[in-house]
């Protein structure tokens, strides 16, 4: 039984600047497919982060804007509050969202802003050159933790999804990954659900992706997938942390 597979309309015909094996490309494609399937390309505005995805606006065919480091949720708040009919999403990495932008994401989630955040967690700062992130694994070497992350000095990695799920405001919070096709199909459903909650004006929606960074991890793309599965998934469990129906 064969399947067809083509580039979604919401995705531009561009070769990305991402390193070989970087899963940003998969996540971009899932967002584009969902936007196509929901027929919302003409009223969607993306907010790009500072980080490896800083140039992501080149890869989509709808309105886009940059944010400064960590501020995308505040910016999306401004957009969405004055134009509630637009579909707004932010796309942020772990340095951006979980470090410099922690205040903005927590407050946007807690206010129940009706936009969607895609959070890509690859346990390292990509853009600035492989520095330690709030989500870096214990013992993981980075350019600013050359002897491995020392928990006694900098604490344990932050589980952002669990943290946001602890807020009493209703929301859709889920952690997914794109390490293998079976995960990718599930992740796409989650992204679609997240946008649907926004379209229904239900709640803030948040999809975390456990992702890879072969280049900064110093692994081949295939090794990186394996490392993420073995090291990250046990600490960052997949699944829905919270749905608005529970509240």
């Amino acid at each position: 039984m064969g399947k067809t597979f083509q580039k979604p309309e919401a995705l531009a015909d561009q070769v990305t600047h991402y390193c070989p094996g970087c899963t940003h490309g998969v996540i971009h494609r899932l967002i584009a497919e969902v936007i196509d399937e929901l027929g919302i390309r003409g009223r969607t505005v993306g907010v790009a982060p500072v980080g490896c995805a800083v140039l992501m606006y080149n890869y989509f065919t709808f309105d886009f804007m940059e944010a400064s480091h960590g501020r995308a949720p505040a910016q999306a708040t401004g957009l969405k509050r004055v134009r509630p009919d637009l579909v707004v999403f932010t796309y942020q990495g772990d340095g951006d969202l979980a470090s410099i932008g922690m205040a903005e994401i927590v407050h946007a989630a807690n206010r129940g802003e009706k936009f969607t955040t895609i959070f890509v967690n690859n346990a390292v700062y990509g853009m600035t050159g492989g520095q330690m992130a709030p989500t870096t694994m214990p013992g993981q070497r980075t350019t600013t933790s050359p002897f491995g992350r020392k928990v006694e000095e900098v604490g344990m990695p932050i589980r952002v999804s669990e943290l946001l799920a602890s807020l009493a405001t209703p929301g859709y919070i889920t952690r997914q990954t794109v390490l293998k096709p079976k995960y990718i199909n599930r992740a796409k459903k989650a992204v679609k659900k997240a946008f649907q909650y926004q379209l229904d004006n239900t709640c803030f929606s948040f999809v975390e992706f456990v992702s890879t960074c072969p280049t900064n991890w110093g692994l081949t793309p295939v090794e990186a997938i394996k490392w993420a599965e073995e090291k990250m998934l046990p600490y960052y469990p997949l699944g829905e942390m919270k749905t608005p129906e529970e509240a």
């Binding site: 039984m1 064969g2 990305t16 991402y18 490309g25 494609r29």
Partner: peptide, 20 residues
């Protein structure tokens, strides 16, 4: 090839397509 599209699903660069 059985055209299961696993490769397309996994490809981070949308470099693989299958058309009818």
């Amino acid at each position: 090839c059985i055209h299961c599209a696993m490769c397309c699903t996994m490809c981070p660069d949308v470099a693989i397509t299958i058309t009818e």
